[in-house]
Amino acid sequence: MKVTVDEDKCCGAGQCVLLAPEVFDQRDDDGIVTLLDPEPGADRHAAVREAAAVCPTSAIELIE
């Protein structure tokens, strides 16, 4: 699985970080998403898929 995020779209809602804190984080200075792990292991796929599904701005793209 490959994860990409669109910083321009991201509104800093933090859903992804709540769901998959090993994969996503938010920058301290503007709350915008950063990727900690663009190719997360299989044990994190479910959480990452959920994050992509609920992101309010559809800022998370997955290639599986």
Partner: peptide, 14 residues
Amino acid sequence: WRRLVVKWFTARRM
């Protein structure tokens, strides 16, 4: 505006 404010509401802060 949003980016100035939302950093107070990040998952980590919460």
